[in-house]
């Protein structure tokens, strides 16, 4: 998942708008509690996700993973739902079926459990989609600039920029380390092997990152970095940003009203 250059309404929104919208959406995910409303939110976010024209491979993996996660959550919640009331749909072992039945208290699939599982996975998927939309539609440095303009301290912003810049470098390095080790005969088999292999990967990776970090720090130092600086990049709010923010505010207001005022 990374930035994809496209000309879509989402891409042209101010990063600040996108950050505020995602915060608002995160609130909505928590506030909304009925299956219908969460489903609506999910559908809206899914449409938004498609509107940024993601590549087909990304769509495929996303939907596939979501389907698996949803089925898994529903099944596990279906079996292990412990709140009352609960309505058994299918009973596998009745409560009075011998010792096993009494020990387990019976094993059934509960209707409320299935619904609860679906609701929770909707929440989870909405959060996932949200982050994907932001990351894929905003150029990383614009996103960080947006954060800075919204009050995130300069030094933290700089840290984020540098980490984004060096993440691909690190990933490449990890790949090379693994091949180098296999060629020197390291065989990774089973859990113990994996743990050992992990140690062999992580140690050179950390030490080299520390060396790199030191070099980067020195380079930043002689480039006059102190944390106080002019920012020549500017962000601009357009009418679309106001529209987007109005819509999301309205949605929040409605959600709060429905959840807290009439209960």
């Amino acid at each position: 998942m990374r930035y994809i250059s496209r000309a879509t309404p989402f891409h042209s929104l101010d990063p600040r708008t996108k950050i505020l919208m995602s915060l608002a959406c995160a609130c909505l995910i928590v506030i909304l509690n009925t299956p219908i409303s969460l489903f609506c939110l999910f559908v809206v976010l899914l449409l938004a996700f498609f509107s940024i024209k993601p590549p087909f491979s990304v769509v495929k993996t996303t939907l596939y993973l979501m389907a698996i996660a949803m089925v898994a959550t529903m099944i596990s919640q279906g079996f292990f739902y412990y709140f009352q009331p609960r309505t058994p749909l299918v009973t596998i072992i009745p409560e009075d079926a011998g010792l096993f039945g009494r020990l387990t208290g019976g094993i059934s699939v509960y209707r409320e459990g299935l619904i609860y599982g679906a609701v929770q996975s909707m929440r989870f998927f909405s959060a996932t989609l949200l982050s994907m939309i932001i990351v894929m539609s905003t150029y990383p440095s614009d996103l960080i600039l947006g954060l800075k303009k919204l009050g995130v301290p300069e030094k933290i912003g700089f840290m984020l920029t540098v980490s984004i810049r060096f993440l691909p470098v690190l990933a490449e390095e990890a790949k090379r380390i693994l091949v180098a080790q296999r060629l020197r005969g390291l065989r990774i088999k089973g859990l113990r092997g994996s743990i050992r292999g992990f140690r062999f990967l992580i140690e050179p990776l950390i030490i080299d990152s520390l060396r790199k970090a030191r070099r980067i720090a020195l380079a930043a130092e002689v480039r006059g970095y102190t944390g106080k600086r002019t920012e020549i990049k500017k962000l601009h709010f357009f009418w679309m940003d106001w529209v987007a923010l109005s819509i999301i505010s309205l949605a929040i207001a409605l959600a709060v009203k429905n959840r807290f005022m009439y209960e």
């Binding site: 380390i177 091949v179 180098a180 060629l183």
Partner: peptide, 16 residues
Amino acid sequence: IGRVGFLFQNPDEQLF
């Protein structure tokens, strides 16, 4: 494995 030895550029990645 065992027939070919390959050394990548950065030595630090290969010392563990």
